[in-house]
């Protein structure tokens, strides 16, 4: 190697940081200029006009070419039909009904703690932990009508019959929108019952009675079936007539004549003593 050959790499080496700096600045400038020339879109499309997502794409084969930077501003962007947006294309996990069920006490605790995250108390309608952009019932039912598992994510089947106005009870857990700080942030000291509690057993191997109401929980498999938190799964999902062994609570299901409030005993005696003021 002679000096001249050494000199060139040295020069490049010594100016390397500057060259890198110039290059990066140039990229940044180009990107900035392209960015500000983009048309400002006032907001996301009205959901009225939103394309329906859960229909299979029409043309499976056409894949648009990637355009160059200079063409981005005027290029026609469209959906990539190869993108698997339709449920029929997504790989759903379908656990087998005879798969071995592994249950440990800590799994149950985890399941209970997980449920508590979206419920103010046992029996409250869970808040929605995901974004909602279409509030119509048929949209919610796409996942929660039958339940679905994709990868590790489970959308459970709803436990109650179908109603028409899901969002009258289920609100989003954390709203997205142009919100400011709430006008107040008072802590709420409500402590709700967080779980139904273990079902009482007549003896150690007896089937536990149902410690919660079955109204709004008509489908046991929604919480205790296959597409559910492991800690709550039944050990015997192949049986279909749950209530033949697991007794519900007449009191919680509001079938029995619930004992009237203790104040009434006091007042019923006294009310017979009430005299109307002179008419």
């Amino acid at each position: 190697m002679n000096e001249r050959e050494l000199a060139t790499p040295d020069r490049i080496n010594s100016r390397f940081p500057i060259l890198v700096g110039v290059f990066l600045t140039g990229c940044a400038l180009v990107g900035f200029l392209l960015g500000i020339s983009e048309e400002q879109d006032p907001g996301r499309d009205s959901w009225k006009e939103r394309p329906v997502l859960n229909q299979p794409p029409k043309n499976q084969e056409a894949i648009p070419f990637v355009v160059s930077y200079s063409e981005i501003a005027t290029a026609e962007f469209s959906k990539n039909p190869k993108l698997a947006m339709h449920f029929s294309q997504m790989k759903q996990q379908k656990p087998g009904i005879f798969d071995p069920v592994i249950k440990k006490p800590e799994m149950k605790n985890l399941a209970i703690l997980d449920r508590v995250k979206t419920r103010a108390f046992e029996g409250a309608p869970p808040t929605i932990p995901h974004l909602v952009d279409d509030v119509r019932a048929e949209k919610c039912l796409v996942c929660h009508g039958e339940g679905v598992q994709i990868g590790k994510r489970i959308a459970s089947k709803m436990s109650h019959p179908r109603f028409s106005n899901c969002v009258q009870c289920h609100v989003v857990k954390q709203s997205t929108g142009p919100f400011e700080d709430p006008p107040l942030n008072a802590v709420n000291q409500f402590v709700g019952v967080a779980r139904p509690g273990p079902g009482l057993r007549a003896h150690p191997t007896a089937p536990p009675s149902i410690p919660h109401m079955t109204f709004m929980r008509e489908d046991c498999m929604s919480c205790h079936g296959l597409l559910t938190r492991p800690g709550l799964r039944t050990t015997h999902p192949w049986f279909t007539n749950c209530l033949q062994c697991h007794a519900p609570s007449a009191a919680l299901d509001q079938h029995s004549f619930v004992k009237l409030h203790s104040f009434t005993n006091k007042y019923r005696d006294l009310s017979q003593q009430t005299t109307e003021t002179k008419q």
Binding site: P105, E106, K108, N109, L110, I112, L113, V116, E122, V191, G192, V193, A194, R195, P196, G197, P211, H212, L252
Partner: peptide
């Protein structure tokens, strides 16, 4: 195994 919250949570 005795996650605070799990067993200690108020019950119905």
């Amino acid at each position: 195994s005795t996650t605070p919250g799990g067993d200690a949570l108020p019950v119905l």
